[in-house]
Computed example of a mutant assay.
Amino acid sequence: MLHYIGKRLLHLIPVLLGMTFVVFLIIRAIPGDPAQVILGQQATEQAMAALRAKLGLDNPWYVQYFDYLKGLLTGDLGESLRTAQAISSEVWPYLAATFELAIFAMILAVIIGMNAGIISAWFQNSWFDYVAMIIALIGVSMPIFWLGLLEQWVFSINLGWLPTSGREEVRDPINAITNFYLIDTLIQGRFDQFVVAIKHLILPGIALATIPTAIIARMTRSSMLEVMRSDYVRTARAKGQKMFIVIYKHALKNALIPVLTVIGLQLGMLLGGAILTETIFSWPGIGRYIYEAIGYRDYPVIQSGILIVAFIFVMINLIVDILYTVIDSRIKYN
């Protein structure tokens, strides 16, 4: 197993290098001059030329790329062109916010999606099966930005139950320790702010969880239908065992491999693809961080942000592969 993990980590190096090269070329094809964005439309050509020289933007593209790689080898992600701050020091709060939102959304997706898929499979062709699969189809097809705006209009503007946007109350901010606000509020004993943090998570979390919930529900149903036709499941039912025992002890464990694969892929996509949700709900996550950097032509932030998201995505896939051996001891990696 350790040999397999080491081999996968070695394979990660050329993947990330290739990704950095492609991203480097693409972002420099974006129209606009970072120097002009920073200094404004009224800046003189001399001032912009001086700023380009200071930032190294007047060097050939291959020189800029190798300078960036040299920084990565020493653990330096570079400095933001907009804030002049080290990216490694300012990216964590954004990353923590995205982690908190994505994990909250994935917990909702797994609980609702897996149970809906299990019940649909057990009561195949029933009214619940038809309704659940229709809702799952709608969930896959529904645009996240439209759902987010609809949630804000119904639950925030009309009913006033939940906050429209943001991550905390502006009048009573949370002291960041880990930058995971649910954890920070518990550490500080601020249970009122814990409730506030949960309220801010609900709307963006539901919007972000919609597509993963639908995909997990459909995959769980398909996998469970295949397993429930097995002889050992029919034997367990014939012995008169309770439905809960048959499903969760016998059938689900053997149906979990494809479901776990989907969960891993969806979690990776949530961490990297929450840009729309974070923009709509003004959530200060890594997706919004990269989105704003694109507007400012902040090349180092874009490159480093995408690199971090890609690394997390690959590591999640590796963890999923390792979990296969935990679920099914017959799976071995040489």
Rank of each mutant, 00 (worst) to 15 (best):
A47M: 10
A43W: 02
F145S: 07
L95P: 02
M48W: 02
K199D: 12
D328L: 04
G40C: 10
M1H: 15
L69P: 06
H200F: 06
W92P: 03
N125T: 13
L12D: 02
S282A: 14
I38V: 08
R167H: 06
G295W: 11
E100Y: 11
D129S: 06
N115Q: 08
L267I: 04
S230E: 12
R167Q: 06
W127S: 14
R221Y: 10
P212A: 02
V91L: 12
L265N: 12
G78Y: 11
S165P: 00
V154H: 00
H3F: 05
V233P: 04
M1E: 14
F244C: 09
P258A: 13
A86Q: 11
G305Q: 03
I87W: 12
I27G: 03
F313K: 10
V154G: 00
I112T: 13
P258M: 14
A217C: 14
V326R: 15
Q266E: 10
Y333G: 08
I134M: 14
M219Y: 09
R171E: 11
P34M: 06
K239P: 04
T20P: 04
I27Q: 09
K70T: 09
S230P: 00
A197T: 15
W127C: 07
K242E: 15
L201A: 05
S304H: 07
H200Y: 08
Q85H: 09
G56K: 07
V15H: 12
I30G: 07
A274R: 01
F123D: 00
M243D: 11
M48V: 00
T279A: 11
A35L: 01
M219D: 02
A255S: 15
S88G: 08
G205F: 07
V110L: 11
L260T: 13
L265C: 08
D172R: 12
A209T: 11
N334D: 15
Q266G: 01
W153L: 15
V262K: 07
S282N: 14
V63Y: 09
A109E: 04
M219T: 14
I322A: 06
L137H: 09
L149V: 12
I286W: 04
M142A: 08
V227P: 05
G240R: 10
Y181N: 04
K70C: 00
S89C: 04
I263Y: 03
F128Q: 13
L147M: 12
N179P: 06
I198Q: 02
L39K: 06
L149D: 03
I215K: 09
G189R: 11
K332S: 14
R297P: 03
A251D: 06
W92Q: 05
I280E: 07
L186A: 14
A116V: 09
R237M: 14
I319Y: 12
A214Y: 00
S120P: 02
S88K: 14
E90Y: 02
L147N: 03
R234I: 06
I87C: 08
I134N: 10
G305W: 02
G268A: 03
H11K: 01
I87G: 04
L17A: 10
S89F: 14
G40S: 11
F145V: 10
R218H: 07
Y289T: 02
I263G: 03
L81A: 00
G287A: 01
G117M: 04
L69W: 03
I112R: 08
V195W: 14
L69A: 03
R221L: 12
Y65H: 09
